[in-house]
Design a protein around this nucleic acid. Sequence first.
DNA 1: CTGAAAGCGCTTACAG
DNA 2: CTGAAAGCGCTTACAG
Lengths: 367, 367
Amino acid sequence: MTARTERRKTSSLANPTRSSRVTSVEIARELGVSQSTVSRALSDDPRIAQATRERVQTLARDWGYTPNAIARSLITKRTNIVGIVMNEITSPFYPFVLEKFSKELHARGWRVLLFTTDAEHEVDDLLPMILEYQVDGLIVASATLSSAMSQELSQRGTPLVLFNRYTRDARVAAVSCDNRAGGRVVADALLEAGHERFAFIAGRSDTSTSRDREAGFLECLLEHGVSDVMLETGNFSYESGFAAADRLLALPTAPDAMFCANDITALGALDAARQRGVRVGTDLSIVGFDDIPAASWSGYALATVRQPVDAMIASSLELLFRGIDSAQSSLESRFLPGELIRRASLRDVFSDASSNATKRSRKAARG
Amino acid sequence: MTARTERRKTSSLANPTRSSRVTSVEIARELGVSQSTVSRALSDDPRIAQATRERVQTLARDWGYTPNAIARSLITKRTNIVGIVMNEITSPFYPFVLEKFSKELHARGWRVLLFTTDAEHEVDDLLPMILEYQVDGLIVASATLSSAMSQELSQRGTPLVLFNRYTRDARVAAVSCDNRAGGRVVADALLEAGHERFAFIAGRSDTSTSRDREAGFLECLLEHGVSDVMLETGNFSYESGFAAADRLLALPTAPDAMFCANDITALGALDAARQRGVRVGTDLSIVGFDDIPAASWSGYALATVRQPVDAMIASSLELLFRGIDSAQSSLESRFLPGELIRRASLRDVFSDASSNATKRSRKAARG
DNA sequence: CTGAAAGCGCTTACAG
DNA sequence: CTGAAAGCGCTTACAG
């Protein structure tokens, strides 16, 4: 009792003269045991005597001992660090992705080393610095790397998962929203609402997300006999959506339905329409993609395709950890379906504006 | 020439039988030099002969050698890792903060270990896991930690900088937007525009940001004889801003000027006003805080106080690195001034609605 | 200009 | 149940 009280007095907080970082050797010396015993006691090795374990753990707590993960990593050859490379982190959708990855990984005892890029193909250049830190796995979100680099990773036994990107290379694991199917769902909904003049406002054309959403949209329209779709190109920004919609609505035969490559673009389009006095949700339907918070703001009420973020994260981590645990990566590409969220910017099927005739013919065509 | 060609053939990419991670020892063995020489050649030690340096560097490149930063960290007692703890990472302002910290740190050769929280005071619990990884410095954004924990950090010699928070504790470095001054600037602008019935919509009341913005606002109004300010409490969300503004505008004597604790709240308030047919920027001025991208969208044109993000980041890193380089933290609190961004949601001083009489009396009072 | 050696702080067979 | 020892992959005095 007295002894313990005394030890508490020499705790790192109370005794600034002691070395600022306690090591297991110091604990061992103080207790007259070996350093191995300290290590084992702290990792709850069952072979250590109950009494010893308690003495060690108590002193460790009192002295504010923190195990050195760097030293541990060196000997175990495992850092418990996952690298996350994130492109366009400031685009509204990705902070949620990052937060969820971070939460999930922390909950499982993993740490996140973060790298940000603002160009899709910067990843290759970042890779050396990432690898220096011996990450046990790597997630690349909204960007890709060369196949030389992904080979380098598999060489080293560092699993990689692409998030919202994929490659033709079958040796890369990837999880993505099914953007093509999402585009189809939107086309279906717009056709069902009786629309006839369609437009697509693209994001950056070098992204598979935008291209696949467009492809699915056009493909489905074509299957329903619509081959003439107005195309505008934006860059995923509000301003580009605004400008593109403005150009479209100035046309002699303006579209009555717009699908935008992402929500931000759609919000810009929506404001452009409003500013021109076009009644969104009646004269014009606008649908976005992502379901960012602003889409559900009552000022917008933007219909959109919600990305299944939670499932995408879970899937990514499953693939990643399968690679980490088994040394044998499982190189699937997974495409998870988005969900159409109907809001006021999408004309209702039963509204006056969508003629009953049109509706019936669609139903017949489908049935 | 032949020799070099041959070596290239044994590169890690071409030779899958070799160990997946090359070490300096393997390079040394291959070249018949000591491991110390390899280490020195790779770090461009001037004492190494030019020829040796080149042989080493060439083989390292060909074999895809990546130095092990974990091993280096262990011996140098420096990880070159900065921990960033970020609260409310999905609030639109913080992704920009994180991106800039990340960019700046990478540019200087530092890495970022990311931790996210969704409660202000979670940081204490995270600290042990952060410290295990021997971060050389710690940035805590939009959250605080107990003084026991900040003492623990200074004990260990790990510099800490609070971002957008501060403590009474003079032993903690902190960089924040001058929220109080920002609140004053808004009060000034609203008074100048001739407003008379003021409201403040708070964010979470446990945050210094919201409290300081409110304090500056009320203080300045009081100095100009306005003591009766309507107060509503939100939680920094769009919905809470919408609801609060809706309540305010339902009052018999509704406010003609609203200051909101952040932009998101203000956007909600703005939409609530519109929905009630209130002409924002004429009958009612609304001012936010942050200057997130949506504030400048033409659909909103929200006046706001722009946080000087770049300067805040630069300042934080300056304090952090001063602590890292000198082992003697410099424990300043810095408050950087925000800038009022006038947009359409703020009634113009010279508009009809702000009576000349009012304007003159303000000017006289100030002159 | 180069090498042999110590050592960072741990984990983990191996031996008792 | 515990300890002595090896070793992870580097950096860096120290010596020549």
